[in-house]
Amino acid sequence: MHILVFVKQVPDASQVRVNYETGTLIREGVPAILNPFEEHAVEEAVRLKNEYGGKVTIITMGPPQASEALKQCLSRGADKAYLLSDRIFAGSDTLATSYALYEGARKIVDLEGDVDLFFAGKQAIDGDTAQTGPGIATRFNLPLITYLIKIDELNLEEKYVIATRLTEFGQETIKAPIPVFFTVEESLNILSHSPLPYLIKAEKAEIELLSGKNVPLDKEQCGLKHSPTMVKKAFTPEKRQRGATLSGTFDDVVSQTADKIAPFLKKVS
């Protein structure tokens, strides 16, 4: 079984602060991390590999320093990692990014063989669009299961998977043929403590490089020029106010709380 995981290196959103005077983000000194949803995607891929056999390949698109995120995937037990990096991709929106990753993934199929399971995070924590994964799946014309929370059954002989996804109203359990594309929730699994041999292998591993030189690309679909997304408006979110502290006896606090939330409940109903 061959599993391909799409990952992204993102700024650690929990450490990005807003300069409320200028309305800009303070990016300085914010560390780059592996998109947390994709950490869970890699975890799941490696878990399946260990159970069913096969290999896990990783691909990311980004600048050279994104190889740090790839190393992190390798230290979770992935076998090989590809970095798709080219100036031509600068300024790509989700449409252009999903095109570039689609072409990169096709190259990986050439090099590493057919892929059975495709994984990506449900979204990246910097953009929150949740479009790139579905964009790639659509280009491959694959069945797509978004917001994956559980793989109930994987049958490699009969080539199907039964999986559960999260919806706005509850859960859905779906049967889909393999190959299939998943985008995953964090609740899919609990991250394991990687064995030391994985970390040693990751430190020794070479990252494979992909670019316009070895991947056939249609330049009319790459980069800022061919990214139709437009930012309509940017605004600074309101500074979060400190929560109110209620005091008094237990009964006092309860009735004060009830008074405060009653109007909201009325509005909702």
Binding site: H193, S194, P195, L196, P197, L199
Partner: peptide, 9 residues
């Protein structure tokens, strides 16, 4: 010994 599985060096 390290705190990781298979962690002896």
């Amino acid at each position: 010994k390290t705190g990781r599985p298979e962690g002896d060096i």
